[in-house]
Write a protein that binds this DNA or RNA. Structure first.
Length: 104
DNA sequence: CCACTGACGAGTG
DNA sequence: GCACTCGCCAGTG
C-alpha cells in the first residue's frame, strides 16, 4: 500500500487527530506521519498554516516539552500556552509541560 | 532556477 | 544541564 501522500498532508492529519488535553512533540508527529527524523517538516508545515486552518497546532511542542520560540510575533507563543492551559494542560515554572503525563 | 530562511532532533563536548 | 554542529525538506523572493 504505497502511501504516496505528501508528507505534509500526513502531518496535518496526525495533528488534527490529537485529542483535546493531549500534547505531541514534533518528532512524535513526524514519526506517526511516516517520516521519522523530519521534525523540521512538521514545524514548517504548521508554520505554513499561519492559523488559517482548523489544525490544533497549539497542541504541538518541541521534544523538550516547551513552546518553540518562533520568529516574528511572540504573541503566538503566549496564545499557544494560554490555549493549552484552557484545555487542562499544566506548565512547569520553567514554562515546560510534563510530557510524561500529557504525551499523546 | 538559485539562494536563504525557518515551529526541530539527536549526538557530542 | 547547556552550547554547538549536522542533517533534513518546503516555501518565498
Amino acid at each position: 500500500m504505497p502511501k504516496k501522500t505528501s508528507t505534509y498532508c500526513n502531518i496535518y492529519a496526525v495533528v488534527s487527530g490529537i485529542p483535546r488535553g493531549s500534547i505531541a512533540t514534533y518528532g512524535q508527529i513526524a514519526r506517526l506521519a511516516g517520516v521519522p527524523g523530519h521534525a523540521r517538516l512538521v514545524g514548517y508545515a504548521l508554520n505554513a498554516l499561519r492559523g488559517r486552518t482548523s489544525i490544533p497546532w497549539h497542541r504541538v511542542v518541541n521534544a523538550k516539552g516547551r513552546i518553540s520560540p518562533r520568529s516574528g510575533a511572540s504573541s503566538a507563543d503566549i496564545l499557544q500556552r494560554h490555549r493549552l492551559e484552557q484545555e487542562g494542560v499544566k506548565f512547569d515554572e520553567s514554562g515546560r509541560i510534563p510530557l510524561d503525563n500529557f504525551r499523546w
